[in-house]
Design a binder for these strands. Structure first.
Lengths: 143, 143
DNA sequence: CAAGTGTTTGCAAACGCGTCGCAACTGGCA
DNA sequence: TGCCAGTTGCGACGCGTTTGCAAACACTTG
């Protein structure tokens, strides 16, 4: 009876299974990713990872993110104007709302839109592999 | 009685109205944009523009694209993995399907999705300024 | 539990895409 | 035709990301 495992443990397990070596720096980065509530970029992740373990270089952050991405444990986003941002992949799929004034990123999910997308792809003779839906918004002014 | 004007003429007219000077290089770039059937990047545009007029530098292509973009006559896209791509703005709004195998970009429009997006933004207390919807697809294998 | 081997790391240099400062040039107007 | 702010080409620069290399390391095997 395995009790609920932490996100980091799950991720590490998945990675080992995929034959990925666990190093101190990779653990540090995983820890940071699994506790992040936001969508940090590589630089931000670097800073946070160093707080966990001083021995993490920026190059390693980039290399690790690439490894984690194609192991499927993180998702990479490329919002407008700026570098890539990352997010642990062990959460249900969602799309993003970006506040143009603050840059804040929020999440949402619409079943209907998901269905429509698949339908549209099919109409064109394609199967949908993945998609990107970002709503760039401004706070509504109260009347 | 003005007969149907060409896209270039319309664009140049709109730009002059907006107080934008017309130079040889800008004309060349407009010509290229108005005849492009695809979504070229800055480099590609540079190549094509030089074919029209040798005297166009890459820096000018970038500067002109910026001018055209905020005059509203071109749209800038940033698909996955790669630089910005451009498209004349004198066509109705649409979203994109990207064939992951060939990189080909196709267009589609879904009224329903447009409505849903606005509704979602509103639900979160935002007004939608613009959005990005891209479907990354693979050709469907016939069964 | 130490040795062996292919991986991973840090560093700094290199990269790609886009921007910028500057001096020369030029479009649109008087 | 002449003026002059706006535009250009050039090369240098900026930023995020990638890479070559030698040293350090993780995991296996004996």
């Amino acid at each position: 009876m395995s009790p609920k495992k932490s996100r980091v443990e799950d991720m590490e397990a998945a990675l080992r299974r995929a034959g990925v070596r666990m190093t101190r720096q990779r653990s540090a980065i995983l820890t940071v990713l699994s506790t992040a509530e936001d969508h940090p970029d590589a630089n931000e992740l670097h800073g946070r990872a160093r707080a966990v373990d001083e021995a993490v270089s920026l190059a390693t952050v980039y290399r690790t993110l690439a490894v984690l991405e194609d192991a499927g444990v993180v998702h990479r986003h490329a919002f407008e104007g700026g570098g890539a941002r990352f997010e642990a992949a062990d959460v249900p799929h969602h799309d993003h709302i970006i506040d143009l004034e603050t840059g804040e990123v929020m999440e949402f999910r619409s079943e209907k839109i998901e269905e429509l997308q698949a339908a549209i792809a099919a109409e064109h003779g394609f199967e949908l592999v993945h998609h990107r839906l970002e709503l760039y918004c401004r706070k509504k002014r109260r009347s």
